[in-house]
Structures are given as C-alpha cells and as structure tokens.
Simulated scan of single mutants.
Amino acid sequence: MNEFYIGILYIVPTPIGNLSDITYRALEILKDVHMIAVENIRHTNILLQHFNIKNHLILMNKDNEKKQSDNLIEELKKGKKIALVCNAGTPIINDPGNILIKKCHISNIKVIPLPGPCAAITALSASGIINNRFCYEGFLPSKKKIRCDLLSSLKEETRTIIFYETKYRILESIKDIIEQIDENRHIVIAREITKKWESIYGAQASLILQWLKADKYRYKGEMVIIIDGFKKLKKDNLSKKILDTFLTLRKFLSLKTSVLITSQIHNINKNALYEYAIKKKSDKIL
C-alpha cells in the first residue's frame, strides 16, 4: 500500500455490531501492519477470524496503557506500522490509547486516523433531536451522587447531550434524569445499534421510564441516551394554542395538574406555564 510511511500509528475503527460495517481500507491496514494494539485479544480475534486476517496482537488496556505505550513507541521508532483498535467503534472514545497518541505526537511519529463507526454519532443521526450542536459526556458515573451532580450541572445545557449507559444502571439513570433535569425533557434511547435487536425510542423522560419498565428486554445490551438541550424560556414560547389548552384545563383542574397535562400535550417546559400563571394571578386574571 503506497500510503505507508516509516513508523505509523493507524487508528482503526471496527464495527459496533454488524461486522459488514468495516471498511475495505480498515481490512487492508489490519492485514498489512506489523502488529495490532487491542483492548481485548479474544474480542478482536473474533473480528480478525471472520475476515481471515492473521496478525500479531498486543494487549493494551487501561491497566497497562502507560507501560505498553512506551513499548509501542519504541517499535514505531524502529519503523513499524501499528494499528490501534478498541472492542467496538472508533478507538479513544471511552477507550485506552490517548497516552500512546500523545507520545506519538511528541516523538513526531505519524498518526493516521480512519473514519468509521461510532455509537454516539450513529444514534444521534437517527434520534430526530437537533444535532448541529451537541456534547458527548461518555458513560454516566456509577455512583449516584456523582451522577446526580453531573446531571444537575447539565440542566440548562442548550446543546443536545449524549451519554452511554449499561443495562445495569439505565433505570436508575433515567430516574436521576427526571429528578435532576426535567421529567418532560425529550430523550431518546438507542439500543444495540446495528445489531439484530436494534431499537430507537424517544419520548419525555417520565414516559421513557414507564416504557423501559414495561419490558425488561427494552434495556438489554448497550445503550446510548440522547437528551434534548435546554430551551430558554421566551414569551413567544406560549402560543395561543398552548394557552387555550392551559386555560381550558384550569377551569376544571388544579394549577399543578393543568400545567402537567399542558406541558405533556405540547412538549414544553412546565416553568413557562408556572411563570405565566403567577403573572396572571398577580394581574388578577387567574
């Protein structure tokens, strides 16, 4: 391959589920490099065997990343070509390898990234949520207090927010999103992307929790949580249609219930309705 230079680290994305998603270029590089740095030897071997690729695998995980990076740098300085892969998707995104890449730049070793699968971006593209501005927050913290503190800090984040979550914590995490962000905030759960049991479902946070609880198979496997960004309150947010709904309900129901139902019907923030009600009460209208 004429693109090979002396001492190159290739960052090679691998499929996040469907093995057919790997690129021809990725396969060529995995065949031709001198060795492949992998997060899990057994996992990567499944991929290589599927495509009948034989190569020397070097284990580099979070436990040995610093030491192994030094070893790999020495190999690269000798003119070796090395591919870096993770278990699935694009390396470095929540995976080991950043130390190695930094050392490559310091040592003037060429780093060539390949485009490829990424669960966060793949899920975002199908979410239906505005995606021109977003922030990726990785896995939600496992400890409740740290998780809640993080979610609270993102309550008024206007960009779309992306998290990864496991089946073991998804219910607790959705509960925390409801408590710390907003029960009416629109979120999407993208599960097992590109795999046989792939599903993408979006609704208000409180409804998502009900949906998950209704069937345990809805939270099996790997998940991406996409949260709609905070919408700053504006006077024109409350259209005539919204106000008509609210005022009609208010004739028969309590303020709290009227606000809740109206916000769910029109998918708006409850605070805007409460502010409207407080203003009208002071004006002696409500």
Rank of each mutant, 00 (worst) to 15 (best):
D182L: 05
Y168M: 04
S206Y: 15
H43I: 05
A126E: 14
H43G: 04
I8N: 14
I146T: 15
I130P: 00
R191A: 12
I208D: 00
L48P: 03
S125R: 10
H56W: 00
S69L: 07
Q49D: 10
H50N: 15
C86K: 07
L59D: 09
I53S: 06
M60N: 07
E3I: 12
Q264Y: 04
K196Q: 14
I46Q: 09
F134P: 10
E28G: 04
I121A: 04
G97T: 08
L171T: 01
I208K: 00
T14Y: 10
I36F: 04
Q49N: 14
K54Y: 13
E192V: 15
E156G: 00
L72M: 09
P117Y: 08
M1W: 00
L84R: 12
E156N: 15
K167N: 10
R218F: 03
I73C: 08
A190W: 01
K80Q: 08
E165L: 07
K240G: 06
M60T: 10
I106S: 10
S258C: 02
E75V: 06
H105T: 04
A123I: 09
T14P: 04
L154G: 15
R191E: 01
C118W: 00
D32N: 12
N45Y: 01
T194N: 11
I181T: 02
N269T: 09
E275Q: 02
N131A: 10
D244Y: 05
G7E: 01
P91R: 05
I146K: 15
S107D: 06
A126Y: 04
R191Q: 07
P117H: 07
I225E: 10
N40T: 07
V259H: 00
M35I: 01
E179V: 00
R42M: 09
I58P: 06
A119T: 11
H34K: 15
S107K: 10
S258T: 03
F51L: 14
I193E: 02
N64E: 09
R159A: 06
S199I: 06
P96V: 02
I242Y: 10
D228G: 13
A120T: 08
L48F: 03
I58N: 13
S206R: 14
Y136V: 07
K77D: 05
I177M: 02
E156A: 02
L72T: 07
I112P: 06
A205L: 01
H105A: 11
E28N: 12
E179R: 09
G7K: 15
G202H: 03
